[in-house]
Amino acid sequence: METPPVETSPRETSPIETSLEPTVKGPPPALKRPTGRLAGLLAAGPGLFWLTALLALPCLSLVAMALATRGQYGEVVWAFSLENLERLVGYSLFGWSPDILWILLRSVLVAAITTILCVAVSYPLTFHMATRSRSVRVFWLILIMVPFWTNVVVRTYGWLLILGPQLPPAKLAALLGLIPPGGALYPGSFAVYLGMTTTFLPFMALPLYASVERLDWETLEAARDLYASSFQVFLRVILPQTRPGLAVGVIMTFVPAMAMFVVTDILGGAKNMLIGNLIQQQFGQARDWPFGAALSLALMFLTLLSLALRKSKAPSGKGTFL
């Protein structure tokens, strides 16, 4: 925080101002509130401390860790090395392999599909909610919120039970010939994305609902009146007006979905490794904290990259013709 510089040069005054206040001379009276450097620091202090202690320092230590090496017994050896970053892009003792890059790509893909599914579910859901009476809306909000309060592992095991071979969903699927008789609906992509979508739905639906609720419904009618098809109404009227909520929802879904491994492991049968698994492995079984840190950095980089992409795509606000 800087103190505003005291004006020393004579203020430019319009003729009217001078004629109204002929007696005012010299610089304007100083503000009474203390505006010293110290006061500014005091005011910004808590926030600054928060950011330093809980964001900047951990990030720096992550970077430092990623540049260190693993000792023989899994301890961290503070010797500068780029080895972890090399491993990240696939170089190891055994030559180049795309394994890690595949894992990163797969994580991005899973997160992207989850986000798209959440958007696809959230639009009809929030439109349905916003057009109901107040009490019904509250009921729906509770329905969305309550599972959110349950631990994600417990919820995911719940899906295991529901999709199990004894219950109607699996029996119906078997009847339709989608799965072998007596089989379960897991492990597989269906179970994974069902679990992922239900896990992240509140993060998408709630911010989107806030936008949909504020939507000017008459503009939808105006669009129809102006020859727009249903698809055009969505694309050119609903989407732009709900963009703020959608953006928050996408960030809040995509970012944690990229690091998620619990749901994919339980419902996917731990067959396909995701970056979340890999990081957890490095800090757990492998006892390779430096490589875990490097992987975490990669995840963070991917997140920031996707956020930057979104930002560059957002409209500038300056009107372009047609």
Binding site: E218, T219, A222, L226, Y227, L322
Partner: peptide, 30 residues
């Protein structure tokens, strides 16, 4: 959207995210 009829709504229902030109051009573009 297929009727050659257009409406001026009571609250005007202008598209808040479009400027005047884009608002007017909406039907032509559609």
């Amino acid at each position: 959207n297929k009727r050659q009829v257009n409406t001026v709504f009571q609250s005007y229902a202008l598209f808040p995210h479009l400027n005047v030109t884009e608002n007017i051009a909406f039907g032509l573009k559609a």
